[in-house]
């Protein structure tokens, strides 16, 4: 069944990558590893966009391709700001452990 439609294979790989990234973002303690998990999730979404563009009806309209390009740009900006925040938090609290950063806890 999957061998008949390559799109299903790509979608399954993307779902698996998204789940791995989500598990990393939810379970790891270090803030940098959480950011890596988020990057993995964004990349899985990009794989979905490209796969649907490739096997879709009108690839000449370039919609999925453009969406993926803009998504990569936004993800790069997000990574820069996120890692800057991690460095700033580490400078203030001397830790990057998310279980210890609970200053805003009520």
């Amino acid at each position: 069944m999957i061998s008949a439609t390559p799109l299903a294979g790509y979608l399954l790989i993307a779902a698996l990558l998204f789940a791995i990234g989500l598990a990393g973002a939810l379970t790891r303690r270090n803030a940098i590893l959480v950011l890596i998990g988020i990057e993995l999730m964004l990349n899985a979404a990009n794989l979905n966009l490209i796969a649907f563009w490739r096997f879709g009806e009108h690839p000449e309209a370039l919609t999925g391709l453009m969406f993926a390009i803009f998504s990569i740009a936004v993800a790069a900006a997000e990574a820069a700001v996120g890692l800057g925040l991690v460095i700033s938090i580490h400078r203030h609290l001397r830790t990057a452990d998310l279980d210890q950063i609970n200053r805003m806890k009520g």
Partner: peptide, 20 residues
């Protein structure tokens, strides 16, 4: 759980998927 939902949906829809 988040993986199970799209995986189930993809496997259900696989025979009717678009393929250019």
């Amino acid at each position: 759980a988040i993986f199970a939902v799209p995986a189930w949906a993809v496997l259900q829809a696989a025979p009717w998927m678009i393929h250019t």
